[in-house]
Amino acid sequence: MSSDDVDDHNGRVIKVHKDNDIIYTTFEFVPGGSKSRIEEVNNDLLHIMKLVNEHLSEPYSIYVYRFFLNNWPKLCHIARLKSNNEIIGVIISKSEPHRNTRIRGYLGMLAINPTYRSNGIAKRLIEMNINNMIKFYKVDEIILEAEVINKTALSLYENFGFIRVKRLFRYYLNTHDAYRLILPITEKSCIRSTFLEQLDPNQLEDYI
């Protein structure tokens, strides 16, 4: 297995053996469970929130996490170190009908602990997340927003085939512009919603 040398920003270098040392899983927030399981989930959730809070510019309340995790439990993926179970990466998404004509996945948050960046963790999480959106929610497209100045993030998503469709003026609280990017999954993504048929109301529950 290959390994990368990672600077942990304190002058130390962390060696991560990509496939052996990191576990990638869905973080399904299922109510209930044993006391130890509850403690474990609580602990994980706190770590996820900490990770996002520290590395994304926008502040999110607990309600934002609950909105995503409770409604779309299959669309939260985490990467954790096998050695100590530490969560070092997380991706949180949702899927909803857009203008009642197509199903749109939305990639809400992606945060990787800087110490472990450049190990392909983000790529792996995005891939798993996209696959679940397609498999479980039959999305026609996946969208996200990224800061115009965040070249690393833009390059990461664009490598997957996300296309910039819109620039959003002063989108973030820090006043930076953002790009809206879309990954087209089906032909529906390429047609204006005005010209698409309305979704079957009986099937809507399958999507959300």
Partner: peptide, 9 residues
């Protein structure tokens, strides 16, 4: 598909 999305307008 990329082309289709870009030319959607």
């Amino acid at each position: 598909l990329s082309y289709g999305l870009k030319m959607k307008p």
